[in-house]
Design a binder for these strands. Structure first.
Length: 838
RNA sequence: GGGAGUAUGGCGGAACUGGUAGACGCGCCGGAUUCAAAAUCCGGUCACUUAGGUGGUGUGGGUUCGAUUCCCUCUACUCCUACCA
């Protein structure tokens, strides 16, 4: 046996072992409890980065731990393979995005294999493969037929030089990323999914997600943005027309002093025809969209206040009214809404307070620069006067309903999901437009609609639309000419159902009932917080939509969610204010210098990014120190949900730890203490640590598990130095160490396990849970005088109060404090503290 | 503007339900080993101190026998979101 630990040989050996023995291949086994652990699948951008390493290490700890706890674990991996970078690379390198993508997948897969992850690669899924995307084309057809998918006009970013639609990330400071042209807004007919139909369910079911971070649930809840209010009709004076508005504050209706409608409200469009000034105003609004200055256009129209006789209020078209929310029209109550107040002051509109704070007299209360939005009492509001806001709301709504001029109404911010992308490297939308104007879905037997295989990418943009010949087709039923839809799906479409596909990855059907019923939902999903809203909300929606289309009966896809922190690193700048890489920086004392001996500015600790040049390549780290070292470092110190700062000293100390553990083998081989009489205490203490490691894994606090393993190792080391451990117990301790290390540093674990003479793999062992009732626990009772700890009493049992007081009083130190003083009060918390108040 | 969160040694972080603040790791200091260095090993490491103690968890207050933990005030930072009526 080699006495030195060679991570390259050892890690390769066990990776081959797991692969040869198919250790992590999963099959349905109804005799076991299942556990589905999943990390968010990667986009194959080229090579893995530290964020991936952290993500997959966290998942692997859970996976291996659950395996050892006897669960039947599913832990798959795949590729989110459609997307813009492949198109960019295609243009830059003049090659097919498919080749580029598959090349990256190959590279990244080999890197993942080197991490020693417990993945089931037989379930690998690649979303750009027709065998994957044909199923989502079918989903889309079902959605179309059931009315969940529909077409409507929507704005896109248009590059007038490259004559292409740009994704948001291709617009930099309002200009096209390649051409530099000013980007224009253009309206196109595009596909949408009716996620808004599920607003209430998506909101309501958040309550069921007990194992999700609160933060994420709050973010989704805000995004869905439910608000309850009323719709109210205003008659336009002297006309037989109405304007309907939505308000969450119908209680302030008596303070309404104007009506504001959006620039593309139906009424605005009507007025526009005859009013040139209005059209000038509207085009002005369209240009300065991000501007927060509120401007309005007085239409000259007035409406009758529905509750105050003979009161007329003006109608404005205003830039701050959203056309997509509510009814695109509001009544303005300047006294109780800051936006309305800003607007009213600018156009000299009336400000009538209708709610006053509780501690004011009616006549004293005035609104000046700040709208009053707190709770209070209604004033100037006829029959609402004296009521609190909540009461006034209820009363006014029932009044409006009685008079048939309004009704209670719930609104949601959540808007339908626009899934059309005018791109090339995405899943084609299976629709054809026949020459007579009919919109038809592609026949199921003709799926998949495959992407064209083209080699020539010498243009400035690639989209399906400009691939010659691809879109021309015929309607098979009629023989009429037809044109294919050239939009592709948003790539969130693929990631909305991949976790279902994993469990039936090679099936001809999208998934098998039996697999879904057994494996879903995902028990533990792990990924970055950046997906808190879109990906996770779309996936939840997709699950509910597929359920309603009859695919299965699952309501929620992810039972448990964990959002990990980022991997960060120190940044550096040289004397020309350029970012420089950490490996070009040297530290001498408190000074940092570059290779030319110039001073280097130490910047903030930031997320690793190429632009700031503070990236550490996992490949280099694994090569140099090994996967176990990288994994151990990822798990040490930083709690998984917080940011982790990558440091050179940190990785080195992890490396030292790996080697230190291995050195125990050498120590063991030359160890010759045979007597076992001094063992009991140390074994007892080690057993306590083993359980603490598991407790912390269960709580997702791996940094604390790591600390407990250090304590285990320190205890072991100490007793070996003191020779209080027998050889037999030494062996036992190392075997247990192998087992508790398995989730964290699996290669080291197996190597150590084997070196101790074991034939079967350590991953096949049961987690060494200790029966806590058989373990001896020492109680350290803090003896306090007036709440200050003065001494520690160590006992082996939980004694009665009287006994502890007696034991404590006999201690010299305590005696000195008590002396002749009288003990007024005794507080005893069994096993923890004894407080004597004198 | 709205929402969420964080604050503990030189650093990352522990501290259960209100019960010994600083576990564990890094760094630093001292020592052993070595021709020497690296590596390794051992010991120390919150501050002050009259060596008995005293102070100490962003600020100021409160509740309590006892507060990093609960309540109120203020400050700083981070993230999300943004004219959502």
């Amino acid at each position: 046996m080699s006495s030195r630990y060679n991570h390259k040989i050892v890690e390769k050996k066990w990776q081959n072992f797991w692969s040869d023995k198919k250790t992590f291949y999963s099959k349905i086994d109804k005799s076991k409890k299942k556990f589905y652990v999943l990390e968010m699948f990667p986009y194959p951008s080229g090579k893995i980065h530290m964020g991936h390493v952290r993500n997959y290490t966290l998942g692997d700890v859970i996976s291996r731990y659950k395996i050892m706890k006897g669960y039947n674990v599913l832990h798959p991996m795949g590729w989110d393979a459609f997307g813009l970078p492949a198109e960019n690379a295609a243009l830059n390198e003049k090659r097919n995005p498919k080749d580029w993508t598959y090349k990256n997948i190959k590279t990244m897969k080999s890197q993942l294999l080197k991490m020693g992850l417990s993945l089931d690669w037989t379930k690998e899924v690649t979303t750009c493969h027709p065998d994957y995307y044909k199923h989502e084309q079918k989903f889309f057809i079902d959605m179309f037929k059931s009315g969940l998918a529909y077409k409507k006009e929507a704005e896109v970013n248009w590059d007038p030089i490259d004559k292409t639609v740009l994704a948001n990330e291709q617009v930099i400071d309002g200009r096209g990323w390649r051409s530099g042209a000013l980007v224009e807004k253009k309206k196109l007919s595009q596909w949408f999914l009716k996620i808004s139909k599920y607003s209430e369910e998506l909101l309501e079911d958040l309550n069921k997600l007990k194992d999700w971070p609160n933060k994420v649930k709050i973010m989704q809840s805000n995004w869905i943005g439910k608000s309850v209010g009323a719709e109210i009709e205003f008659n336009i004076s002297n006309q037989n027309k109405k304007i309907k508005v939505f308000s969450t504050r119908p209680d302030t209706i008596f303070g309404a002093t104007f009506i504001a409608i959006s620039i593309d409200h139906k009424l605005s469009k009507e007025l526009l025809i005859k009013n040139r000034d209005l059209s000038v105003f509207i085009s002005k609004c369209e240009k300065q969209d991000s501007d927060k200055v509120k401007i309005g256009f007085n239409t000259g129209l007035q409406v009758d206040h529905p509750l105050i006789k003979n009161k007329k209020i003006p109608v404005f078209v205003a830039n701050f009214i959203l056309s997509e929310y509510g009814l695109g029209a509001v009544f303005g109550c300047p006294a109780h809404d800051q936006r309305d107040l800003d607007f009213a002051k600018q156009y000299n509109l009336e400000i009538i307070p209708v709610v006053k704070p509780h501690n004011f007299n009616d006549s004293e209360f005035k609104v000046n620069d700040k709208a009053y939005v707190e709770d209070g009492v209604l004033i100037n509001s006829e029959f609402l006067n004296g009521l609190k806001i909540k009461e006034a709301k209820d009363k006014i709504i029932s009044y409006l309903e009685k008079c048939k001029i309004g009704s209670k109404k719930t609104n949601y911010k959540l808007r339908d999901w626009g899934i059309s992308r005018q791109r090339f490297w995405g899943c084609p939308i299976p629709i054809i437009y026949r020459e007579d104007g009919e919109v038809l879905t592609v026949d199921e037997k003709d799926l998949p609609v495959k992407l064209p295989e083209i080699e020539n990418f010498n243009k400035n943009s690639i989209t399906l639309d400009n691939v010659s010949g691809w879109k021309d087709t015929i309607c098979k039923n009629t023989g009429m000419k037809a044109r294919r839809e050239t939009d592709t799906f948003d790539t969130f479409f693929e990631s909305s159902w991949y976790y279902f596909r994993y469990c039936s990855a090679r099936s001809n059907k999208p998934f098998e009932q039996e697999d879904i019923n057994y494996w879903l939902p995902v028990d533990q999903y792990i990924g970055g917080i950046e997906h808190a809203i879109l990906h996770l909300l779309y996936s939840r929606f997709f699950t509910k939509a597929l359920r309603d289309l009859g695919y299965f009966k699952i309501n929620e896809p992810f039972k448990g969610l964990f959002t990990q922190g980022m991997v960060t690193h120190q940044t550096f700048k040289n004397n020309k204010d350029e970012w420089i890489e950490p490996n070009e920086v040297e530290r001498i004392g408190s000074r940092y210098i570059d290779k030319k001996n110039n001073d280097v500015k130490v910047g903030k600790i930031e997320k690793m990014s190429k632009s700031k040049k503070n990236v550490v390549d996992p490949n280099d780290i694994i090569e140099k120190y090994g996967a176990d070292t990288a994994r151990w470092f990822m798990l040490s110190d930083s709690p998984p949900e917080r940011d982790l700062e990558w440091t050179e000293t940190g990785i080195i100390s992890s490396y030292k730890f790996i080697n230190k553990v291995w050195d125990f083998v050498n120590l063991y081989n030359s160890y010759n203490i045979l007597e076992i009489n001094k063992d009991e205490k140390i074994i007892n203490d080690l057993k306590l640590k083993i359980n603490q490691v598991a407790d912390n894994i269960e709580k997702f606090q791996f940094n604390k598990s790591v600390a407990k393993i250090y304590e285990y190792v320190n205890l072991l080391n100490e007793s070996i130095l003191k020779k209080t451990l027998s050889k037999e117990s030494f062996k036992w301790s190392l075997e247990k160490l192998s087992q508790i290390l398995q989730p964290f540093t699996p290669h080291l674990s197996e190597e150590l396990w084997e070196a101790l003479g074991n034939k079967n793999a350590c991953i096949k062992e049961t987690w060494p849970e200790q029966n806590i009732n058989e373990l001896e626990v020492n109680y350290n009772i803090a003896i306090q005088i007036n709440g200050k700890t003065r001494d520690i009493l160590v006992t082996k049992e939980l004694f009665e109060k009287e006994i502890v007081v007696e034991l404590a009083s006999n201690k010299d130190k305590i005696k000195r404090y008590i002396e002749d003083k009288k003990i007024i009060k005794i507080i005893y918390v069994p096993g923890k503290i004894l407080n004597l108040v004198i």
